[in-house]
Each structure stands twice: as C-alpha cells, then as structure tokens.
Design a binder for these strands. Structure first.
Lengths: 141, 141
DNA sequence: GGTACAATCTATAGCGACTAGAGGAGCAAG
DNA sequence: CTTGCTCCTCTAGTCGCTATAGATTGTACC
C-alpha cells in the first residue's frame, strides 16, 4: 500500500491541523511520509494512528518530549514499560495537583463573582479580591 | 518618596522573579519605577501592591491582557465594575471547563497506571490507552 | 482545453509569557 | 583592595504551535 491520504484528509481524520502535522514532522515526532510525484505528503493508516495517538496525548497534557518517549516505547514494545508507566504516573501526580489548585481557584473566583451584585451598581469585589494579598506565601512581612 | 526597595527585594516580597518584573515593565504592565543615581530601580509600596496584584491574578490564570483591563479599572474605580465581573466570570467558566476535563483525564490516567502491574512485567496499558482513540478494544501497530 | 479556485508546497516570522545568557557596572564586607 | 553579589541592558532562546507569503498542483465546471 503505497498510497494514502493527503495532509488535509489526515488533518480531518486525526483532528490535528494541517500546519501542526507539518510541524510534528519537522520536530521529528512524525516520520516524513511518502510523497506523490508532485511532492505532496501521503499518509497511511499507521501515520494516522500515530497522529491520533499524539493528539490524544497532547490533549491529556503530555509534553512533546513525553510523547516522544511514549512513541519510542510504542515502536519497540519489547522494551520495559516502566518508563511509560513512570511517565503516566508523573502526569497523574501533576494532574491531581492541577485539579486541586483549580478547585481552590474556582472557589476564589466564585467568591469574587458572587461578591458582585449582578445587575447592580458597583459593589464589586473582584478587584479587591485580587488585590488582597493575604495569600502571602512570601516570607517576611 | 524617593526611596524604595531594589528589584531583588521587590522580587522576594512579591514573589515575582526579577527578570519577570523587568518584563512586566517592558510590556507596560508595570510603570517604570524611580531609579537611583546608578540607574537601579526602586520600588515603592504601591509598586509592590501592584506586583502582588499581578502575581495573584496570573496565579488565577488571568492573561496579561485581562490583568491590564483589571488594572485600568483599579486605577479608575469610578468606572463600572461590570467589566471586572465579566472578566472574572469568563475565567470562572474556563476554570470549570478545565476542571471537568482534568477530572476525566485523571480517571484515564488512573486507569492507565492501574493497568500496569506495579513491579511486574509488561502488562502495561499506558500506551494502549493513549492509542485508543475510539475507546474500542483495538490493538495497535 | 481553459479557467477558476481549492489545496498543497516551502520558508520564515510571530505569538504569549517568560527565561537564560553575555558583558559590564555598582556596592558592601572582609 | 579585592571578592562576590546584585544590578544594568541587550539579545536570543524556549514551547507548541499559528500565520503569512508566494509558488505550485490538483480538481471541478463549462
């Protein structure tokens, strides 16, 4: 199977934008695909799967370097999966951290918004809340 | 008031790094402070408050442009607070969205990590989970 | 076949929000 | 006086794209 789909179709199917696909090729995340005579890229099934993989991982917040690692592991499945597990674990910790801080943030934003009488005159606490530095984690006074 | 603290002290007190303070000045988020004879920046109380405000807002995930808006409102408190409220509301929506997707992500990562027998041989599902774009139980190349 | 228009190509520059480095000057303490 | 820290300016790099320019090429319709 030497033929495949054009970059546009690949973009549609994978959900990765055209320039982003080219960018991934440029940074070596995606191998250069075969080309038509007129130098157009042709993507096969494997490329599409790889693209979907990348996209999914990016959506999950994995950095490109982490994805590179995962892809290497994928390419050589006999390797230990410890690295993949490690990567996922690190990410999980990160995510839980992030969730916690976003929950705190949401509470604060809610407080801010609630403090502002919706259709009323300026009784707004948004700025005061932001200016309020009782969240001082700086040492000293 | 001609004196104040140096940029290093300001950084320590506000929690904003020295180069970042200079950067904020450069992009007009912070007014150029007074200087010593040898051209060192001197920050007063108001500057420190503003820096803390900026930092707090950045921590809350406000973009620099949004902060600029908030600072303008702060500088002229007679203006309607609707804009500030609006900004905060938009941010809140964003944050709730973000939390939702992170919760989904956490579930997926947990599933991934749990799928990998901890100290054991490769039974690892990290890569499969990531490659699985349709939530089918397909295998990958 | 002609013509219009979409998709593709390369190459380069820009974005946000910093961060790092070079190379030099000032200042406080031993 | 010298060591070592802080500070100065300036430029360039980071990450993960995104946008633009200008040149082909492929496709659809007549």
């Amino acid at each position: 199977m030497l033929d495949g789909v054009t970059i546009g179709a690949a973009a549609r199917q994978s959900g990765v934008k055209v320039p982003t696909i080219r960018y991934y090729e440029q940074i070596g995340l995606l191998a250069p695909p075969s080309r038509t005579e007129s130098q157009r890229r042709l993507y096969g099934k494997a490329d599409l799967r790889r693209l979907a993989f990348i996209r999914h991982a990016r959506e999950l917040g994995f950095e490109v370097d982490a994805i590179r690692t995962l892809l290497t592991l994928q390419d050589d499945p006999h390797q230990s999966c410890a690295a993949a597990d490690e990567t996922a674990r690190a990410r999980l910790a990160e995510v839980e951290q992030r969730i916690a801080s976003l929950l705190a943030l949401r509470a604060e934003l809610k407080r801010m918004v609630d403090g502002c009488a919706n259709g009323h005159v300026c009784d707004c606490r948004v700025i005061e809340t932001l200016a309020d530095q009782t969240h001082n984690h700086g040492r000293l006074a």
